[in-house]
Design a protein around this nucleic acid. Structure first.
Lengths: 143, 143
DNA sequence: CCGTATCCACTGCGATACTG
DNA sequence: CAGTATCGCAGTGGATACGG
């Protein structure tokens, strides 16, 4: 086995202790990464979009459904349930007829917007670079 | 149709313009959300873990494989290809025998670590709250 | 050692239909 | 209106085997 390159070197990033990286010789399990389930939420197909919509204030089910083109009723329900379970949104049923259900971001949900928007800003800033990289890679792969 | 609640209100978050939210009446398409493909990378099963490992310096394929418990060779390859395509990592082949391939974060990849670590910090800070919310929700669902 | 190819189980998710 | 139930497909990802 070839010697591992020295750890600290130009451009190395300081990782906070709580973001799991393997100590030498001990493989990391994915479950060790506590943020994995958070990242899964963030990364899934609709959650961020829903959270960003709710950041504008409470919305009812049908409003969200209409606002998000292409989402199925089933997926909207499932996503909202997941967000509710994680404590990100509250679900309020008005006992009217026809029924009306409002969804609203909790304090926790609102606090999530900060890092997510930071990521969005990063994406916005670097999207041209990423698209150039993709185009270059694809061109090289084709040729 | 019931009147939409007023937009600016207590706890409303300011969303930057480039993070797409629907203007009144126009449903948003998921493709409008430019950060969607970024979020998909962030959210997929292994990418963040790989990026965090590479944040410690360049690593060779087999090193990464050993470091991440449970990842298949196939998935490691696919993830690294995806990251390479997006311009996040470079792939360097040493024409030795046996062959050796090093992966290293690009400047772009390193810059991504900032927002990701911010998200990790958020997750670390709020994980207890989330777990409490989940437990409460599950208990209510069961009872 | 590093990667690709093939096969297959699983599941995410859309479509549709049906209830309170 | 706001769900739930069921079905079916397409994509994801693991296991295995093989090639450079």
């Amino acid at each position: 086995m070839l010697p591992r390159p020295p750890r600290p070197q130009g451009g190395t990033i300081l990782i906070p202790d709580h973001i799991a990286v393997p100590v030498d010789g001990k493989p990391i399990q994915r479950e060790d990464c506590k943020i994995a389930s958070i990242l899964a939420r963030i990364g899934d197909k609709w959650s961020v979009l829903i959270v960003m919509l709710l950041a504008g204030g409470p919305r009812r089910f049908s409003e969200l459904k209409r606002s998000i083109d292409g989402i199925s009723q089933r997926m909207l329900t499932l996503n909202l349930r997941g967000l509710e379970r994680d404590g990100m949104v509250t679900r309020t049923v008005f006992p009217t007829n026809p029924p009306r259900v409002d969804y609203e971001l909790t304090a926790l949900g609102r606090s999530l917007c900060g890092p997510v928007i930071a990521l969005g800003n990063w994406a916005e800033e670097h999207l041209p670079e990423i698209e150039r990289a993709r185009a270059g890679f694809d061109a090289r792969a084709a040729g």
